[in-house]
Design a protein around this nucleic acid. Structure first.
Lengths: 110, 110
DNA sequence: TCAATACATCGATGGCTATCGAAATGAGGC
DNA sequence: GCCTCATTTCGATAGCCATCGATGTATTGA
């Protein structure tokens, strides 16, 4: 995947005319959300007790191989939807709600 | 594409634990938005003078072939994001804002 | 009835991506 | 310096999807 940082780029889709580059950026951003494994990763991490989770505890619930989970975590982090913090040999992830808000705002109505 | 009707299915991603089927439905819905041509179609139609546009006036601005535009219009209509009305030999499309809202709500924060 | 226009469908193709096993990287502990 | 464990990266594969040309269908007007 084309892991590009999600940024506010434009008026909401329905209230302003969307240029070609803006449409491509937005489409890339939605592409990150267009996978059930990534949506569940976001959900699991956002609802974790301390708002964070270790990668080691994410493989089980998702029923995917460890490399696959790592792949999706890296896409989410690359888009800025997750932060990654290394503590010893474990990697801990947190959701960045502001990034989700950017996408939500793109769907605002006039 | 798996053109499935977009429906409110679940708690927002970040405030409730997302089950497997709900995650798949949501991912399918975001997949519809994850294409620059479809985003520009939504934008063009939503910002048209009367809130509607004829398919014949959409091919030009998009710089895609007529079959390709027709393909994307059918995916958007299948997802319920557009309505299609046939008038004589022309097909007119309108945005259904409530469907967009369903996706926006899925991105609400706790 | 015929030609022209608008749009959808079909079939094929090229590119992208999710997935996995295997190998590499890197951090702790002994 | 080794060994182990967590994680990432690599290479390969299978399936999906955007795209287009060609064709089919329907409507309008001459």
């Amino acid at each position: 995947m084309d892991v590009k940082l999600i940024q506010a780029c434009c008026e909401p889709v329905l209230t302003g005319s969307l240029g070609i580059p803006e449409a491509e950026d937005l489409a890339d951003a939605f592409k990150v959300l267009a996978d059930p494994v990534r949506l569940r990763l976001l959900s699991l991490i956002a609802n974790a007790p301390e708002g964070e989770m270790c990668a080691c505890d994410l493989v089980g619930p998702l029923e995917r191989s460890q490399p696959t989970v790592s792949h999706h975590l890296s896409i989410l982090a690359g888009a800025g939807l997750l932060t990654r913090e290394q503590r010893g040999k474990w990697a801990w992830f947190r959701v960045v709600p502001e990034r989700v808000t950017v996408l939500r705002d793109a769907l605002d109505l006039g």
